[in-house]
Nucleic acid binder design. Sequence first.
DNA 1: TATGAATGAGTCTTCATTCAT
DNA 2: TATGAATGAAGACTCATTCAT
Lengths: 201, 201, 201, 201
Amino acid sequence: MEPLERKAQILGHAARLFGQSGYHDTSISDIIAAAGIARGTFYLYFENKRSIFEELLDGLLSQILGRISAVDASPDAPSPREQLIDNITRVIELFADERHMLEILFKGAVGLDREFDAKLQDFYEALVDEMIGSLDQGQVMGLVRPCDTRFAARIALGAFKEMLHERFYNPDREDEDPRKLAAEVLDIFCKGVLEDGVAIP
Amino acid sequence: MEPLERKAQILGHAARLFGQSGYHDTSISDIIAAAGIARGTFYLYFENKRSIFEELLDGLLSQILGRISAVDASPDAPSPREQLIDNITRVIELFADERHMLEILFKGAVGLDREFDAKLQDFYEALVDEMIGSLDQGQVMGLVRPCDTRFAARIALGAFKEMLHERFYNPDREDEDPRKLAAEVLDIFCKGVLEDGVAIP
Amino acid sequence: MEPLERKAQILGHAARLFGQSGYHDTSISDIIAAAGIARGTFYLYFENKRSIFEELLDGLLSQILGRISAVDASPDAPSPREQLIDNITRVIELFADERHMLEILFKGAVGLDREFDAKLQDFYEALVDEMIGSLDQGQVMGLVRPCDTRFAARIALGAFKEMLHERFYNPDREDEDPRKLAAEVLDIFCKGVLEDGVAIP
Amino acid sequence: MEPLERKAQILGHAARLFGQSGYHDTSISDIIAAAGIARGTFYLYFENKRSIFEELLDGLLSQILGRISAVDASPDAPSPREQLIDNITRVIELFADERHMLEILFKGAVGLDREFDAKLQDFYEALVDEMIGSLDQGQVMGLVRPCDTRFAARIALGAFKEMLHERFYNPDREDEDPRKLAAEVLDIFCKGVLEDGVAIP
DNA sequence: TATGAATGAGTCTTCATTCAT
DNA sequence: TATGAATGAAGACTCATTCAT
């Protein structure tokens, strides 16, 4: 088999297994059995167990970033709101297509070791930074009310992650339109949950 | 040593180690070395490695729940807003006192196995249910605008978790007043980040 | 079993196996099978395969050094010649008692890795230094003819090693009196093989 | 590439690697990487790892033997002493030219397995037999004093090996004249280290 | 209640060798 | 001749758990 093809095949099986059972409960034996290859073949393509997981995670993080575009403010572009919703929708769709990846991101890669933790931190930090930029700009334009934008961005990240959770772990929502969820989470983050002009007593 | 005292002592060391190194990278050997006990003694107090971790996690989840009170609507009680902020503040303070517990909750217990995942799910689900109740009531009272309250509650949970993250993993915030953070996250969730009457174009 | 006893037992089996089959052809499985212990038990007493071999080699080198005494020049002591022969004899007897050790020293530990090589080098160097001292002193006393004493000492070492080889690998000599061999090698090193006053043409 | 040329090229790289890292720490991968050939190509020229090492060792032993000539007693020939020194010098020069070979002979091939051990034994035995012949003849001619000539020959071998060691592992001697060393070791073996007419007390 | 020696299933990893192309 | 993907037996090592004392 062609090296690239074989590597992709192994990665595919590994992704499924890591997603199903987590990093520690997936053994090299499991992977090679699923891929139908010999033990040595695995090590022809990956240095060790850690590295195949890392490759998987790196690929996932890149794919996510690849689905997020900076908002295009030119007149011909869709409205900013549309673009934001598009971004969120595309990420939801990514996980809809590769469900295992959600497990890997939300469970498998969490707390594995210091290096993986740092990798995730950095990834989330990059997302947050992106959002801080937009919020800061929004403040300048008078759209965003005065607040700690880093804090707000972090909250947006949490809202977004939990929206994914709701969509993918609540069976009632497994068919829900990604676009609708994207709009919903964006709305809550922008306008909050209270009626206009109302405050908690 | 008194059995209960000894058990508590072992739990303490285990909490620290699990928090520092995670479940898999903490061995029974590490725990007994830290506690200064013999291998067999450990198994006098805990059935196995899993069970000591479970005990730790259960204790943590109880403590969290114990710090959250339902909003008391009686006239003598503090305002609902105060009570909500109090709840959030108490949870922040819990983690400020026992930092390891945050690691255990956010990293150590994530993706460990199906059973632990379910336990965490149930815990978060309980929190969400609580919030749904409040939001539903808010809708009835005309405070909360029409929306999917389960979805909104989930978002609130995500916002809250990420606030904890921001507080405890961002060195710039390690001394920030828990009360202020509690108010801030509550505000964003209630009013959103946009200026009144404004919308994203 | 008492730890020290068990450790000694394992060391004994390992010595035999390393002596018979060499370092690489002796597996942990071989050792534990011979010792009748479980795999984990081995690692209770030795960090790894290398370390048990090292312990064996260190022990051997110490034993050798322990059987060599500096020549005592006091009037009550036996004659220097007797003392030198005693030293050599004791070393021959050591290997006669623990034949495996000879294999370990002459074959098993040779060329294993840089660290073991250095250990052996250092050991031989120490022996050579000892001999250099004696030869230098002999020169001062007019006993030893002018020559490069370091070179001569090295030659003495080679002569001694090959004498051991002859004694232990030539079946005709396996019962030969250690004392006689000691005297013989000492004589050749001191007087050479030529008749007095004769030279190679 | 011409088969013989290719084979020689592979042998050259293998010799260097075996000399540097020893038999076990040199992998087929190392050899083919150094030689710039494919894995399968290696097995076109050598049956297996053992056989390339054997070929190398056999070549080395032949070369050594090829540099040793029986002493020519005819009147036109150089003096016997000259011839002996010439023999020794040529062997020293061989190793000076191919240092790796020394490592292979003194470390790499030692204790590898029973068969290689036997091969080395046989080689040394042949050298010893040669020397026994000369010593016996010397005794007949009244040059060599009465002694066990096999034992003496063995000692000579040991002296010679250790001389090589001194020359090649002692940095102070790396430029020393081979001829001088040859004379020196021959002298010690012939006349010993003591002054004429002196004995150890 | 406490000890700690013993266990052995399970895991990752290496590497000489084969063989279809 | 040459290639290099594939093999799988064999190796070292870990660690949660048990149990006789």
